[in-house]
Design a binder for these strands. Structure first.
Lengths: 359, 359
DNA sequence: ATTGTAATCCGAAACGTTTTGGAAGTCAAA
DNA sequence: TTTGACTTCCAAAACGTTTCGGATTACAAT
């Protein structure tokens, strides 16, 4: 049987109120009493009932994280690293983390959000893989429920987020390929509904044009962000005649799949074909050859959105602050930013090189 | 402002009790009343407060999953797939999932378990990556708190778990290498405290001996289960003279790292060097070359331990049942098993082949 | 002696739900 | 008319905590 405040109160001959306040360290309880209560609590093995505390305090000290899992074999190193960042940061702030896996844009996903918000299951929620016309964001905004997103959206409303500049990132890697002399550069894109997909495709397209290259629709193949998807998309691209001399994938996992597909055809990556990715997951560095990619600080992003969410909940972050250049950073004590766009970094490794002769 | 039962009661002119019972579908409320209440609830946008319900029902309908994360860059596809299995199955049974990331064997990890158990934060907990003399299992057993483990342990106590037969699995792949003619077979092992590490190393050793090969301590290198770790361990192994002609890694991620290390030296995997893994993560299939490995149905294991835990909580699983051959499966309705050992399957792909001449 | 103040404690209410143990009313059988 | 059964409803307690608004005592200042 678990020990409650009432048990302690009975044991030390005080009221529940006094025991509670003694343990909480209020100064309207005598020092001696406090010590006596503390000792009794320890001796009896008291541990506060977390649920009861939640109900009384009208907050749950819990963050919710609804993971969009497209299929059962959700084998994504990107995600586990993000979760580590979120989980560790939540722990640092004494918040629990509620995780739910739901297939994106499903009725179950919608119901999950309703449950969290209306059932007061958590104090805030983290949204990842933002989508065009994202109903999750619309819903949370409407309900003015605290949330922070990893990624922007195209809704009119302003909300707190952290995002990498996908457009600039793809510009970097596309320009890199162009600088190496590539003229036929394929793209393995992502599900079109994802915001970052739009931005990355645009960055790719615009950079091609800026280099006098006309984007060729046949060189853009949809991918599902898995290695298998990258493998298959690359097979399609490599069957073209003439085939592209470079392939850029919208994430590293697909880039690795693309490398395998090319290697299966006997192509040497970095010579016969250049491959570029996005994310810089640890796998990229120790691939063969090491993958040229755009770095995204996944763990830190996880930490950051979590920290922002905690601040938002605790009222240390203005919920609807627009980015505002006129905001003076007076007194050194600048308010925390609510909309962060990270500058991407190109990591050049051996998977990219000049095109082969006649490329 | 959120709507409570009291608000509905006031609105329809009934007591809170009746409203509650109407919504719960008890038959001691008149049909007309029930409909009226239901309509009002819907109209007013009522959603039950989950925390209050938890407190009253003295259960949380929540499972806890404490993920052992060794470092910040926890980039492990194995884990995300396991989580998908756990999360989806928990959802199917209307359980929430509480996830905490803690570094293994740390004081924070211990405190997390205490909090979950004593604070009644969850109704049961999932334990993964079981360790020798596993204090988590000891603690949960002592407190007789419901839990199911992925992996066995060496404590005397009997508890419910699902595990792959790591010993047999390593036997399979080691024998496969021996059958191909390999005599010098290296092993990239895992952190020694992990139960499956012990079993896999034993399976490797015993199979070597069964083939008349004496295990060489120099051919066993510790790894940390990351690709980088496999990369480094393989570098050490490949610097030996004579070098091994085959390398077996205790998981696929390290096997992929080992492949990269070998390829960096110009070796052709499957010809100059054979490589074997363990897990069969999706990355293995589309690696170059595709990786020979031992299959572990990760997603299904996640589902299975979750289902067992739910049954345990709901009293449908005898908490301390030993595996008992004499248990008659009468009436077709066999009780669910509490200790499951899965038979591993060898997946032969192109990363393994006969040793090069003179190997 | 009175007043004021500080120190220490506590009863009751509250958080929102479910459950317990009837109460009140209706109706048919005896 | 009484009894019993059935239907429908509800007040109060309970889950375990925190907080609100005093109450009581002691003691110093007036």
């Amino acid at each position: 049987m678990t020990i409650t405040l009432k048990d302690i109160a009975k044991h030390v001959g005080l009221s529940v109120t006094t025991v509670s306040r003694a343990l909480a360290g209020y100064d309207d309880v005598a020092k001696g009493t406090r010590q006596r209560v503390r000792a009794a609590a320890k001796e009896m093995g008291y541990y506060p009932n977390i649920t009861a505390r939640h109900l009384q305090k009208q907050r749950t000290d819990t963050l919710a994280f609804v993971v969009p899992t497209p299929g059962p074999r959700f084998s994504d190193p990107f995600f586990s690293e993000l979760l580590a960042g979120i989980g560790n940061e939540a722990g640092r702030h004494h918040f629990d983390l509620l995780v739910s896996t739901q297939s994106p844009d499903s009725e179950d996903e919608r119901e999950t959000y309703r449950r969290i918000v209306h059932g007061r299951r958590a104090d805030g929620v983290l949204v990842v893989r933002t989508r065009q016309n994202d109903e999750r964001i619309r819903f949370l905004s409407e309900q003015s429920f605290p949330f922070v997103a990893f990624g922007r959206s195209d809704l009119g409303s302003s909300f707190p987020y952290v995002d990498e500049d996908s457009y600039a990132g793809t510009q970097l890697i596309t320009q890199h390929m162009a600088d190496l002399g590539h003229r036929r550069i394929g793209l393995v894109s992502a599900p079109a509904g994802l915001m970052f997909c739009q931005l990355r495709v645009a960055g790719y397209r615009d950079t091609l044009r800026a280099n006098g290259l006309e984007p060729d629709q046949a060189l853009i193949i949809g991918g599902d962000l898995t290695q298998r998807g990258g493998f298959q998309a690359a097979q399609t691209l490599l069957a073209l005649d003439p085939r592209p001399t470079a392939i850029i994938a919208c994430n590293d996992l697909m880039a690795l799949g693309a490398m395998s597909a090319a290697q299966k055809l006997g192509l040497v990556i970095g010579q016969d074909l250049s491959v570029g990715g996005f994310d810089d997951i640890p796998l990229a560095e120790h691939a063969h050859p090491p993958l040229t990619t755009v770095r995204q600080p996944i763990y830190e992003i996880g930490q950051r959105i979590t920290r922002m969410l905690v601040q938002l909940i605790q009222g240390q972050l203005a919920p609807e602050t627009r980015q505002d250049a006129s905001r003076s950073s007076r007194e050194g004590e600048t308010a925390a930013e609510t909309q962060v766009i990270l500058t991407p970094q190109l990591i050049i490794r051996d998977s990219s090189g000049p095109p082969p002769d006649g490329g």
